[in-house]
Amino acid sequence: MSETDAIPEFKRKDAAGSDVGISGGMSALAAGPGIRSLSEVLAIIAVAVVIIGGTELLLNIFAVPHFVLPKPSQIAVALVTDFPLIAPHLGHTLVELFAGFGIGAVVGLILAAVITQFPFAEKIITPYILLLVTTPMLALVPLLILRFGFGYEPRIIAVALASGPMVMINAATGFRRVDSGKIALARSYGASTLQIFWKVRAPMALPMIFVGLMVGSIFGLLTAVGAEMVGGGFGLGNRLTSYSSMIQMPQFFAVVLILSILGILIYVLFFLLGKKFASWEA
């Protein structure tokens, strides 16, 4: 590489106005082609206007009853007027999500960091982790309810079980990315195993850790809502079953909308965190 090779790098950065997206390990976070121009953003908004307006119009023309499919305007009204009623349930769901995901992520990260240090243990444990990743933890919720009742516990456990393995398996991929040159570099300064872990392995794994956290938290949200639908009198999932059983479709869709926004916020949070702490991976 010569001096001039750096120039395209700068150009890419300048043209984009900010970082050129997070490729490599972070690419799983970046949906689509990355940075958009103003006209592209306007086009995205235009598409939304057309879809929402068109739906409103069609539902009006064909006089579809709101219990079949509510109009976007009815959903908006329900979202505003019923929000005080829905808000506590949103709070419950968030508690389950934060607690469950928190536990799952911490345990997952620690497990990933530890087992990747022991290739033999890793070989033995990985199939079981894969089993945990692929088994829908929702299936366990009825059992958990039987054991723990209708409170937070079964839901938090289910969320932890759903998100933990996801965090673990991605983080382990990150920790396994051994760059022997960088480790040799640290060793040449006399670095201890612990120093190598914190100063080389962990930063190197960070992009994959963010991927794991993002996927894990989305899985956690999914599981929390699902668990709430199975049993217990609170949470957004409970609102979904309750509103649909009462054929309050505008409110039902208002809750769906809240869940979508929640999911997007989680995605954006981890995308931004990844960009801040793992954008070096170009």
Binding site: S2, E3, T4, W280, A282
Partner: peptide, 9 residues
């Protein structure tokens, strides 16, 4: 950052 430097740098 390293990616902002040429190979020689």
């Amino acid at each position: 950052f390293p990616r902002e430097l040429s190979g020689g740098m």
